[in-house]
Design a protein around this nucleic acid. Structure first.
Lengths: 147, 147
DNA sequence: CTACTTGCAAAGCCTTTGCAAACTA
DNA sequence: TAGTTTGCAAAGGCTTTGCAAGTAG
């Protein structure tokens, strides 16, 4: 997982504050998990989060990871991406945005610099009378390095 | 599931021909399933297909449905849409196109009349050097009737 | 102290697989 | 007849849940 040092601390504080505001207990496991989510830009899976945390907390369970993910999803601070095999989680950009998944290396790239999607909601409302709340936009293909 | 009588027969023939060309055996179960896929515009799940076919073939199994779906996916004649709870299948428009899913009534609407997505592949290639092969674009929200 | 969180194990779901019997061509 | 397809049951993989023990506030 790639590390983003710039907004890391800031994002971590945001997540922490959300949990506090919610009245949730702050445990060492949760602190570590918030830290991981704030740092990782690699759209980790639950299993990946679990395996990373396990290095520091040998007794942590996958159930705890899922339970905390559920809380953060509920707070809108984590975006779930549903893939054919497993779900991935984005704790840095919890809003809907396009993702590019390389079918060679498996890397997931954020495609949030794309135009053409900004007007999508309006066009959908006009064309279909459908009011968009969320979206999941995934492109599969080959990334720059794998081509 | 909504019925489309217009291109039904034509689509059915296409699917059938694909199976024949592949050297696959044509069984009564498969004929019924092709018919169902050619008719349904409702993006059925494997379970829904199974339950419908079971009315006509009480002994058919879910495994058979999945096995035939696998064949058709391999032939590119069925598009799989991965949702949080279950996969849905489109046997009428097996190419990538946007879907609008109503979170109230659960209906899945084809969003293939939207502009803005036609240039997406080019823009993604230019911006990220990423070559798109497939996509899954899903918008969640409220449909015209449910608003 | 009280209520939330944890770990463990079990269960749930959807999907896939193994294998002998049935069937298409 | 030969090889594919079927049904059944079991297994697989990811996710959720129940519950007693542990812990934050």
């Amino acid at each position: 997982m790639i590390i983003n040092k710039r907004n890391h601390q800031e994002r971590f504080e945001t997540l922490l504050q959300k949990l506090r505001a919610r009245g949730s207990r702050i445990t060492s496991h949760r602190l570590a998990m918030l830290d991981l989510l704030a740092v990782s830009e690699g759209h980790p899976s639950a299993a990946q989060i679990f395996n990373t945390l396990r290095l520091q907390f040998p007794t942590i369970s996958l159930a705890t990871v899922y339970k905390t993910l559920a809380v953060l999803k509920e707070e809108g601070e984590v975006l779930e991406i549903n893939l054919p095999l497993e779900a991935r989680y984005d704790g840095n950009k919890p809003y809907s945005h396009p993702h590019l998944i390389c079918t060679s290396c498996g890397n997931i790239i954020d495609g949030d610099e794309l135009s053409g999607f900004s007007n999508a909601s309006k066009e959908i409302l006009g064309h279909y009378g459908f009011e968009v709340a969320q979206s999941q936009i995934v492109f599969y293909g080959k990334c720059k390095d794998c081509r």
